[in-house]
Design a protein around this nucleic acid. Structure first.
Lengths: 252, 252
DNA sequence: CGCAGGGTTGATGCTGCTCAAGACGGGTGG
DNA sequence: CCACCCGTCTTGAGCAGCATCAACCCTGCG
């Protein structure tokens, strides 16, 4: 692949593989290998299966699929959603690079949600049985894996809080603030970013309709808290948004 | 303690300790030791700390407490709740015997929610650092622990679904059906049981007010789906409740 | 140019919240 | 034993926040 990049004077190295090692991945400080030394990171690398490209709109896994792998997102964004018996979606989360997908499948050996790429993305396939073996021998990895699972639990608890007792304005502010902080943690701007999801997906996630999201965006724009253009977001008053999220500022 | 129970002709055995072993606990087929052989169960027993009694209304842990232990419920019921910045509670779950408390604290070494006994209860204290060491040497235990964490994730996802796109009637039916199935899994009646939580706690959990819960109970009674007397519940039409939960039956 | 998909805005209505009053049940003290 | 009280629960009336329905706009694309 792309052989023109390989100078003949250099030793032959498979570029794909090189690119794909944990040690050279920009997410290794957030992702599973966090805190591992080089030796351990190599051992982890060895069990990781394919690095797969997932095109926008394509499913990584679906409800009911047999559980084989966890997936670490290298690049891009995903949404996960469940289907209620009436056939309607419920978005349960938006995931970005450095996050792990599929942990809900461990309990029953089947996936409980669908995961779809919101844009062209890349993931690392982590065969769970191999990972579990490795965990037995690598306390640092074990610890970090538990932290990631636990993080998923606390993340969901905060969504429960959001859905259970916040008003629409507060929910939406919380959503924006949450995205901003996650981009910041990844070294991107926390004040300028693009929404990778549609209004409909946001509304579904927040337990609101698409119209409500649209109105909220208009209002946040009118109030001067945000600059909005299509899916482009600029946060103009981060403190205000945080205050609304916190409920300090009861502004409808 | 209770020396009158110890016949002088039998070898002296500490009754408290006997009572407290995993192997003799009625919950060992649901709880952490599930699937362990006797040897492994003994090793697990050895790391387990105190068996503590928690009186009704007393906190097992609070938000911000340093994380030391997970807790397995031997007996009784708990609720977990978060506090939003406005000081209001949001109940995030009700736990019963055989379930594990505290897994959300692994990620940050601090508890993220409060856990309060809904009635006089008993828990086993499981020092997490010891548990993690043990997990490295006991693949079966490791597997089951991951299943339990994953179960917590899927449980919360289904609450998100409930809060995100169900109507009040459906939420409440889902709540009752969920309780029933959990009692059944524990060998209790799935059609006759007592609510251990107040109307207010139910409402808070389901994102509804106490008045709504009260009205829903009255309605379910009037429709002949439930018999209700104070906190005593008898399910008269389980199929109906399941249909409402599933959304098959759009009955408001 | 026309179309499709996504987004915005307005008018109206319903579900569940708020506020208020009263009932019930269990516990306490006279 | 009754009177009283308190917390919990029930029921009713009115209201508001968000959903629903509908029309329209914008943008990209064939």
């Amino acid at each position: 692949m792309t052989p023109e990049l390989l100078s003949p004077t250099l030793p032959t190295v498979n570029v794909e593989v090189l690119r794909a090692r944990c040690a050279t991945c920009s997410m290794h400080q957030l992702c599973l290998p966090m805190g591992l030394d080089m030796g351990d990171m190599d051992r982890l690398d060895q069990i990781i299966g394919r690095r797969r490209k997932i095109a926008r709109g394509v499913s990584l896994f679906r409800i009911g699929d047999a559980f084989q792998n966890l997936y670490a997102i290298r690049l891009g964004h995903f949404k996960t959603y469940q289907i209620n018996p009436g056939g309607e979606e419920q978005v349960t989360g938006f995931q970005m690079a450095g996050e792990l997908l599929g942990m809900d499948a461990i309990s029953a050996d089947r996936h409980h949600c669908n995961a779809v790429a919101l844009e062209d993305s890349e993931v690392c396939e982590i065969p769970f049985s191999s990972l579990e073996q490795l965990l037995g021998n690598m306390p640092t990895l074990l610890r970090h894996f538990h932290r990631m699972m636990s993080q998923e639990i606390t993340r969901e608890q905060s969504v429960m809080l959001l859905l259970g007792n916040m008003q629409a304005t507060q929910r939406f502010a919380a959503f924006i603030v949450n995205l901003a902080s996650r981009y910041e943690a990844r070294g991107y701007s926390g004040s300028n970013f693009q929404l990778r999801m549609s209004r409909e997906e946001i509304g579904n996630y927040l337990g609101l309709t698409i119209e409500s999201i649209s109105r909220l965006l208009s209002k946040f724009k009118k109030e001067g808290w945000l600059r909005v253009s299509n899916r482009e977001i600029e946060i103009l008053q981060p403190a205000k948004l945080k205050a609304i999220t916190a409920g300090t500022d009861i502004c409808k």
